[in-house]
């Protein structure tokens, strides 16, 4: 099997990396690029812990062949906010009890961010639908949903 050169934009930076064509995006991110913020909860697209944003859409990186990222713009949790200025979703997750064990958190934040990047005034139903692919076993989702609503509000205020 010959290696392929994968070029894409990751968290704003150009990336060029040799991969085998059967690798999945999650493994390139976690193992090759050592961005372990993206979590592996099931490896089958059933829990959302590995959610990243590719070309503006939340996807399960465990179901995306890495080659699909070719020329794409990929965002992972490592590219969201900074300690100087957290993303509003990070802020509200941290302050409103939306984080417990933290294992679903990066994926959850990516799903929420993808939603709010597109729509800063989502309905409660839209929030539920956007997060339903992200399993959280700790929180019962109550505070997560409130945090997303509050982040939306913050983002609307900024606009």
């Amino acid at each position: 099997m010959s290696l392929k050169i994968l070029k894409f934009t990751l968290n704003g930076d150009p990336i060029e990396i040799a991969i085998s064509p059967d690798e999945m995006l999650i493994d390139v991110l976690r193992d090759k690029l050592e961005l372990t913020g993206t979590k592996k909860g099931c490896g089958k697209g059933e829990c959302g812990a590995c959610t990243v944003i590719m070309n503006g859409e939340a996807v399960n990186s465990c179901l995306v062949p890495a080659m699909k990222a070719s020329c794409a713009v990929v965002e992972t949790i490592e590219g969201v906010g900074s300690t100087d200025e957290f993303h509003p979703v990070q802020e509200t997750f941290m302050d409103m009890g939306a984080i417990q064990c933290g294992f679903c958190t990066p994926g959850m934040i990516m799903s929420a961010k993808a939603l709010l990047d597109r729509n800063t005034d989502p309905t409660s139903k839209e929030i539920k639908k956007s997060l339903a692919g992200n399993i959280c076993r700790c929180t019962g989702y109550v505070k997560i949903k409130k945090a997303v609503q509050a982040a939306a509000e913050k983002m609307r205020e900024k606009q």
Partner: peptide, 12 residues
């Protein structure tokens, strides 16, 4: 189409 899998699955 809105019922399939999850939001992430439906995006792909």
């Amino acid at each position: 189409a809105g019922y399939v899998g999850s939001h992430q699955i439906r995006n792909a």
